[in-house]
Write a protein that binds this DNA or RNA. Structure first.
Lengths: 179, 179, 179, 179
DNA sequence: TATGAATGAGGTTTCATTCAT
DNA sequence: AATGAATGAAACCTCATTCAT
């Protein structure tokens, strides 16, 4: 990937996230990336192609996070693993994820793109099994609830400082009887 | 409010929610509302003015929902009240809220507008006090968590059928030791 | 003429003069006149009708100024009269004329309207005769020159203070051997 | 400067002058220039940017005319020079100046733009000094008067034929005792 | 006399995109 | 790989004007 192509990609993530996809013009991206507008179309064919490239990148990272969890077998470790990985992601790629999150929540269209390539359904199945093994009465509802929470918590952690992050994760773990 | 003005407002809520604000043209709104495009600007000055009117309406409803809770004193009733009112809103104005929710999550700009006029901070204070009185160890974190969840839960309920809705609310209440 | 009609007229003169005719919207006139936009059209039929009313008013004043000069017979008095009347107009209706002048120079269309109803040609004929009687070698050119100047001088006087006005008029008279 | 850009510029001068700035639409300019409307904005950013480009061009020409006069020292030559240069300009770029003049007199806004970049004040200072050296009693007023005249005369000459032009200039020179 | 609701036509400007170089 | 010139379509918005009341 050439420097200019990468510059386009990064500028686009930034602008799409902060201004919204529909609200960000290719001309603005070009200007802020220090690149001719035509180059965007050479490299990504479309404005939508540019979005796809970003989403693909995001899903790659997301899968890298989900995959190790999918390999786990001990039910308690699975649920605990979710929280630990959350903290890990937040700490190591905070900026990247901040942008990805806002981007994801911007329109059903974009959300769909994110969902398409992800391993989210595998994760849901795994969690449901874990809750069942742990003897929870309503594993489906528990899975629902924890997945809902994960998104909101993730978003919250991204804005918090290190101490706040750790104490909140610990709070969650104790609440869920995991440590 | 004249019929045409109301038609504009409703069409706009619908389109902004499903297609996104930036992605919905005033000409499309006019066409679907059966109205001249110029009328939109006569009544709302701007495309943004139209959005503001929608947000104002949404905040009014939201406050109508929060206000009765703010009047409560018994801590258990307060938390239980949140869930009951959630169900109430979902049942009585499902369509309206479905649209408002998607709209709210569409861009930081719009979210900010929603926040500006709301009584959300009052609700947070009340909940924190309730958790403290109930003897929770970490009232602030509990409040944080429940408020995070409420949004996600609300969104989930809006898509569920009546049986699913009720059973999930009951699940939440029992999880929170409230019934 | 009702109050509201007059208010429209005055606001229009003001705005047309400072912002230009094409650049002044009927809605702005209505707003600044404290009147509904529809009323403009009730009273003047058109935006152009409104302009016509203003021009008619301007020409009336202008004729009132030219007429007494047209009645003179002594050549020296005629030329001197021009300057004296200039000063008179400037002093008595400065605001009105300031507006009229800028308006007149704003577009060929408007200038044409002003010319149509005026007695300017009569004045030119009279001046030419006066210069001839006074023995000037080139009465036509002298008339040309003085008429050219009158517009510019008038515009200049409108911006000057009383002392400046008087001294400049005296300067002109002495230059023209008239006092 | 590409062909199309120049075509836009020339068409705009023409239309702004004959129809007025506010009354000339960018779509009309584009059509008559044989160019897409978007290109106007690519090259000049704004409708106002287009006007600015025209004014800049006009001021450049105007300065080219004033500059040689500013280098003169002999007072009589200075004043005579003004008339001669007037004739020169009228003869060599009549069309261009005709348009510029009408444009300049169309609105205070435009006139201000013209004034901003010009060397008019230098010319005024020079003339005042010249009149002083020639022993005129009221050099300031003389300068005022001649500058007023120059504008009007210029406008008049632009519409006159060659013979008329020459005879009027000669008339002026003799009147001002310069030949 | 006066207005508020409404509109068709057209205004300036921006958009995503193509093409020749 | 990279760009500058160019564009058709559509964006938001304003305009002068009409009509029912």
């Amino acid at each position: 990937m050439t420097d200019k192509k990468e510059s386009i990609l990064n500028t686009a993530i930034d602008l799409f996230s902060t201004q919204g996809y529909a609200n960000t013009s290719t001309s603005r991206i070009a200007k802020e990336a220090g690149v001719s507008e035509a180059l965007i179309f050479k490299h990504f064919k479309n404005k939508e192609g540019l979005l796809d490239a970003i989403v693909a990148q995001g899903n790659e990272h997301m899968n890298a996070f989900i995959t190790p969890i999918l390999g786990m077998t001990d039910p308690k470790s699975i649920i605990e693993g979710m929280f630990d990985f959350l903290l890990l992601m937040v700490r190591e790629h905070a900026d990247f994820w901040k942008l990805q999150m806002t981007l994801k929540y911007q329109s059903p269209l974009i959300a769909a793109k994110y969902h398409a390539a992800g391993k989210f359904d595998d994760l849901r199945t795994l969690l449901e099994k874990a809750y069942k093994e742990l003897g929870y009465q309503n594993p489906k509802a528990e899975t629902n609830l924890i997945l809902m929470m994960l998104g909101s918590v993730f978003t919250y952690l991204l804005e918090a400082d290190h101490i706040e992050q750790e104490s909140f994760i610990n709070f969650l773990k104790s609440k869920y009887n995991l440590s």
